[in-house]
Design a binder for these strands. Structure first.
Ligand SMILES: [Mn+2]
Ligand SMILES: [Mn+2]
Ligand SMILES: [Zn+2]
Ligand SMILES: [Zn+2]
Lengths: 136, 136
DNA sequence: ATTATAATAGTAATAGTTCCTATTACTGAT
DNA sequence: ATCAGTAATAGGAACTATTACTATTATAAT
């Protein structure tokens, strides 16, 4: 009756990869990392398991940041800022006090399920590069 | 020297389609609409012109709401709520007072370029349907 | 150990979008 | 009016991220 979920080596390694890569990897990046440990792992296995792990709440997805989905082992509520030049994604701490009175009452009759805030900007590395290029 | 942009029939019709369709159409929906008036228009022409129009600031894109990009003729600053069941997107009015103190100061050294807030929920039509199904 | 089936590798298929190329149609100058 | 230069076009190929399919394998419960 119960959901008989097997604890496969692949799934363990995939979850560990997301945790160790840290900075919001894509499926492809997870795949590369996993293959350095389990070279026979397929990309579909990576996608399937990222999905399973997300279902289980062991990780979350960061969508709407470029066209690839990114994965996040950090399960605390937080939002993200993405570099428009290199695509890097960083966490932004956001406190309840920042969000007072939000979202607004009138949601056109919608029942609210989730709020996602995505910032876009230029990361320190990229703005550093731009400075250098100017002086050349 | 200046950007000699032609005002083609296709581009006019595409912009009008976005305006008349109103509720944040996808490229495909614009395409269907445009073809009812200019049947020989190609999908690439629609994509290209939606891009051009966005560049010109005549419309904006709503990304991160499902996997398709949606287009918006409403040029005022506002955010969106998407129905997780049917994908419908509606405007949410958001006032400066709702956003006081946001975003936070500390952005990990990023230079902020834009803020996008996306809500997800269940639209009135879909929640209505769910009620009906329950009573059957 | 046997069994039942969840999970896998490998590959095909899909969706949304972008790129490419030959052709068309404005625009502006002769 | 003719012509040259070049945006813009149609049509289709290519691309990218993701999902679906299928035969095989590995795991957990008995
Ligand atoms: Mn994060
Ligand atoms: Mn809108
Ligand atoms: Zn960057
Ligand atoms: Zn709905």
């Amino acid at each position: 009756m119960s959901e008989v979920r097997r604890n496969t080596r692949q799934r363990q390694v995939i979850l560990r990869a997301v945790r160790e890569l840290g900075c919001h990897p894509t499926a492809e990046q997870v795949y590369d990392r996993v293959r350095s440990e389990l070279p026979r792992t397929s990309l579909s296995t990576v996608y399937r398991n990222l999905g399973v792990l997300a279902d289980q709440g062991l990780l979350s997805t960061v969508a709407g940041a470029g066209k690839e989905v990114h994965y996040d082992h950090n399960r605390e509520e937080h939002c993200h800022i993405r570099c428009s030049l290199c695509g890097r994604i960083c966490d932004v701490d956001i406190f309840p006090s920042d969000m007072e009175g939000f979202p607004p009452e009138d949601l056109s009759g919608f029942i609210l399920q989730e709020v996602s805030i995505n910032l876009v900007g230029i990361c320190p590395a990229c703005s550093g590069k731009m400075e250098k290029e100017k002086t050349v």
